[in-house]
Design a protein around this nucleic acid. Structure first.
Length: 292
DNA sequence: ATTATTTGACCTAG
DNA sequence: CTAGGTCAAATAAT
């Protein structure tokens, strides 16, 4: 049996794959002129495979979803949902495609990209759903645990002020989701150092980590050190309107570069599958503020 | 029932 | 050996 948590988690993976695909497209696009045919082929292969995988995965998810909710009206709508999501996620990319492939007012380019994949949903490809979904089964119990190497790329240190508002001043909140995995007393520091890693480390090897250390002299300030940039595309939405920086950078030293996407994939999954209980609310098709 | 945090053990570079 | 970083089992939170 599948829980809904599981499914929306799977949805996250699908969205991540799509993001990755789009990234590949962009990178190909920017280096298109000076690309030798061989490497062009390689790039295209990779892109096709990425989207194809996402397509397969999405098909399975929809099969599951449809079989679990006796209702059946999702299919025609999915395309527009995908479009809507893409517009939210990558307006820039959409625009590019409109210009290039002569779309009209609606998002033709991207629509075309996805139509092929999503139409296939109707084709009722009977697949072994269970096999692919519950893959993470038993493995060799004694893996000689690989140890971390030294120096994992860039490093960025930021000083942030603790929140003055009332209570515990501990969690400075950037726009990523972190999972604490350790805490250590540091020699010569009055306060412990906390270790976090990206929550979506599982969504294939997102290496992002951070350390949070309260300053000795100024307990109202934290030193946050970031290591590795996110390869997951699941930043929590920094909505343009809600510019409430709960975290105030005082100063920063940067040696790296990171990409931020506008909307969390997690939220995408919620749009499509809802975050609530099982089999409820088929209105997930429309935006939250839909009048109806 | 799943996901997150806590915390001592464990690991590795120096 | 020590110090800092990470793992993972127990525990808490949702």
């Amino acid at each position: 049996m599948y829980s809904y948590k599981k499914i929306s988690y799977q949805m996250e993976e699908v969205m991540s794959m799509i993001f990755h695909g789009m990234k590949l497209v962009k990178s190909l696009e920017s280096s298109l002129p000076e690309k030798p045919p061989e490497s062009l082929l390689t790039s295209l292969d990779e892109i096709v495979k990425t989207f194809s995988d996402a397509n397969e995965r999405l098909k399975m998810l929809l099969e599951i979803k449809n079989s679990e909710t006796a209702l059946n009206k999702t299919k025609p709508v999915i395309v527009s949902v995908a479009n809507q999501m893409l517009m939210q996620m990558e307006p820039g990319l959409m625009q590019e495609y409109w210009l290039r492939y002569g779309g009209s007012t609606s998002s033709q380019g991207t629509e075309a990209m996805f139509q092929t994949q999503l139409m296939a949903v109707d084709g009722g490809g009977e697949r072994n759903l269970t096999a692919a979904v519950e893959r993470s089964g038993a493995s060799g119990s004694s893996t000689p645990r690989q140890r971390r190497r030294k120096d994992e790329g860039e490093e960025q240190t930021v000083l942030v002020a603790a929140l003055r508002t009332g209570n515990t001043d501990l969690p400075p909140d950037d726009n990523h989701t972190w999972r604490k995995y350790g805490q250590k007393e540091i020699l010569g520091s009055r306060f412990p150092r906390a270790y976090y890693r990206c929550t979506h480390q599982k969504l294939y090897n997102c290496p992002a980590k951070k350390q949070v250390q309260r300053l000795n002299d100024d307990p109202f300030t934290f030193r946050v050190t970031y290591r590795g940039s996110h390869t997951c595309y699941n930043s929590t939405a920094p909505t343009a309107s809600s510019a409430t920086p709960s975290t105030i950078p005082i100063s920063s030293v940067t040696t790296g570069h990171s990409v931020d996407y506008g909307l969390a994939v997690v939220d995408m999954a919620d749009v499509m599958f809802g975050s609530g209980g099982v089999g409820t609310n088929m209105d997930f098709i429309f935006p939250k503020n839909d009048p109806s």
